[in-house]
Write a protein that binds this DNA or RNA. Structure first.
Lengths: 237, 237
DNA sequence: GCGACATTCAAGCAATCGATTGAACAAATG
DNA sequence: CATTTGTTCAATCGATTGCTTGAATGTCGC
């Protein structure tokens, strides 16, 4: 109808453009399911087997395997066989950066995110988190106790320098392990990982000054800050 | 079977976690289609009407409108009514950052991307692009001619300081507008926008020293570098 | 208010996706 | 070599997505 007096060809719209957009969409598609995002969050803590990931995410093994393969085909994760197990890991730290960008856009432009944080997370801990840039210096001065509330498997794969590992469910029982005269900074998997919010809240209820780290271990590592890894052969899996 | 000697509950797996992952997936889902990625690339150049976007992307208006609404619900774009038209724009520069992270992961981990660039884009221009950080200084010293090969509509919405606007299809005809004694740096919409690759290649075929800018206008703007905007009321549709 | 235009809505259909199930494959163990 | 354990494959089904078509809504110029 009106094509004649408009630009004749819409755009060069080259084959290349289309092909590239399809590749970018392929990556985005891999991110476009909550189960896969959760798997990526676990993988950002360190290498894990399919079974371990399935259990952690509450998925059947077959289902987890399929999701992992989609992630793999999108270049987001890599895998290697280790004996009977296949161990998956993030392809690269740039995946952590991509996830951070995704969360940031969601946080800033979806009111729903604020609502959820307010309703569920802020109920446990309303204090502002500690920026990673501040924390390293305070660790070196011995001013803080760093508390890693993730499961031991994830702690073993890498944690903040000098961090104490007390999974959330053992926190009350093992309060004695925390020095009383220093502030506690708790962290877990990422900025929205509920474990750290909950831990900080529970500690302060008991009179222990505690705050969350801003972000989790993957973000710390992405920022180039130092990470401690347990010795190999610690019988972790 | 083996549930008894493993962790009893897979994870806290709180309602909040699930709800947040669904929000993040919502954003990723909006990115997970090549047509929407293309619309975002156009929108990253500046505000545009539905009809203009549909034409540029080669979509029906109804189809473009639907995609734009998905982008809007994911918080990636915003819209306002301007007379008869509805004008869409990126919600924020953090969307440009997200797109950059997405492209970066695809480029580094999908061999297909390299293959496409080699086959289609590198055929036009094999030289390394000019980093944005270098270019600004050279612009100020008057050492380069900056060439914007996008359509006038996009140029008008914002362009590099002092850039000359010659759309690709007019390039041969308007070669005389380019000073002969300075290097030309061409740019268009982004790092994979074929216009700049093509322009640099054609200019060098004619003996004019020319290279591409690394990235396009949106990336330049995201880096906080200065952008010139045409005066309002320039009759730009 | 009435037409003209721009955009959105709603219905329908093909194609794709996600989860389940059971079988197939691979590596270690006896 | 047979068994066990861990992972992937293949088939299936319901749900969602993407595009088209035609109608409805909203805004401008008269």
């Amino acid at each position: 109808m009106s094509q004649e007096n408009k630009a004749p060809a819409p755009e060069p719209s080259s084959q290349a453009k289309r092909a590239l957009l399809e590749q970018f969409a392929r990556v985005a598609k891999a991110l476009a399911h909550p189960n896969r995002l959760e798997l990526l969050e676990f993988l950002a803590q360190g290498e894990r087997t399919v079974e371990s990931l399935a259990r952690a995410a509450g998925l059947s093994v077959a289902n987890a395997s399929q999701h992992l393969q989609q992630l793999k085909q999108a270049g987001l994760v890599a895998s290697r066989r280790a004996g009977q197990h296949v161990r998956y890991r993030l392809a690269d730290d740039d995946v952590v950066a991509l996830l951070a960008a995704l969360r940031e856009v969601a946080r800033r432009h979806l009111a729903e995110v604020d609502r959820i944080v307010e309703a569920y997370l802020a109920a446990r801990d309303t204090l502002e988190p500690v920026p990673a840039s501040d924390l390293l210096e305070r660790i070196r001065r011995g001013e803080v106790t760093v508390l890693d509330v993730r499961p031991p498997e994830e702690y073993a794969a890498g944690h903040l320098p000098g961090a104490v590992n007390i999974p959330l469910e053992e926190l009350e029982r093992r309060l004695g392990e925390l020095p009383r005269d220093r502030e506690v900074v708790a962290y877990c998997r990422g900025p929205y990982c509920v474990l750290a919010w909950e831990a900080a809240g529970r500690l302060r209820e008991r009179g222990i000054p505690a705050r969350r780290l801003e972000g989790g271990l993957p973000e710390w590592r992405l920022a180039g800050l130092p990470v401690e890894v347990e010795k190999e052969g610690a019988g972790q899996g």
